[in-house]
């Protein structure tokens, strides 16, 4: 019998969205040109060759190795690309993505990557051409709201801050701006170096849309367990309790 991963408990929109992120079954909302994504990432000029750290694997005379025979190299690994990164900051004000779920998405769905999870940012490192493909998936999909999520290699401060009056997540380096046309434009790359041209990444989600697609439990959206004085545990909380109890008991091992 084929196993179908369940990924995450709960019947709320947050539970459903978390399952979507983990499964990779994400809705595509926009189509940002690859060259624009490469420019925002800031690692190589769009159209430039990929810098490499070693020759293509086929030219390297790889040793006879069962693991190598089982695991097909990613395109970036096969070509000898260097390892680079993308990193996103997601606002607590109902951004669609949250750091752990970006990591779960990457770990489950992206080959050859190294996700890193922090509170205010989430980084994925991978061979450059692989990473560009992963980044495009992230930026094109419902994982991203262009106002509440932004690519920030450094100076990421913003996820927990109040939003700007125009609804954008605070950014000390002001890498994005809201245009008069209602679209969000990147004016700097992810480490804050000004871009040659503004890059239009589309319109922000409405507040209702962001709340519909978010993966964060909040008392003023989908709460994890009701509100003060009116608790109603979500299945996710019950599962958390279950794990905590088992971990505690395993450590004790009363036998």
């Amino acid at each position: 019998m084929a196993y179908t991963p369940q990924y995450y408990p709960g019947s709320t929109s947050v539970g459903i969205n978390r399952r979507k992120h983990m499964s990779g079954n994400l809705e595509k909302l926009r189509d940002i040109p690859e060259a624009d994504i490469v420019a925002i990432m800031g690692h190589r000029a769009p159209g430039a060759d990929y810098p490499s750290t070693h020759p293509p694997l086929k030219e390297m005379g790889e040793p006879d190795c069962p693991i190598r025979q089982m695991v097909e190299p990613t395109p970036g690994a096969a070509a000898g690309d260097r390892v680079r990164y993308n990193q996103f900051a997601d606002s607590v004000y109902f951004a669609p993505a949250i750091p752990y779920w970006r990591s779960y998405w990457a770990a489950i769905n992206c080959r050859g990557c190294d996700p890193g999870t922090l509170s205010g940012r989430q980084i994925i490192e991978a061979r450059e051409r692989d990473l560009e493909a992963y980044t495009k998936k992230q930026m094109d999909s419902e994982m991203t709201d262009v106002a509440l999520c932004s690519m920030r290699g450094c100076t990421v401060h913003g996820h927990s801050l109040r939003l700007e009056e125009n609804g954008l997540q605070f950014d000390m380096l002001a890498r994005t701006e809201l245009g008069a046309d209602g679209n969000v434009h990147y004016v700097k790359d992810q480490v804050g170096i000004p871009l040659d041209k503004k890059i239009n990444v589309g319109k922000p989600m409405s507040e209702a849309e962001a709340k519909k697609r978010t993966t964060i439990f909040r008392f003023d959206g989908v709460p994890l367990s009701g509100t003060v004085g009116a608790r109603k545990p979500d299945e996710a909380l019950e599962a958390t309790h279950h794990m905590w109890t088992l971990r505690s008991m395993w450590g004790f091992r009363p036998e």
């Binding site: 607590v92 752990y100 779920w101 922090l118 509170s119 964060i216 439990f217 994890l224 958390t240 905590w244």
Partner: peptide, 21 residues
Amino acid sequence: LAAWYLSMLVHKEAHGRLGFF
């Protein structure tokens, strides 16, 4: 101490973020 650790797990589950890994 047991309560400390459960709080960490509940917090992470609620916000999908905690500290640095």
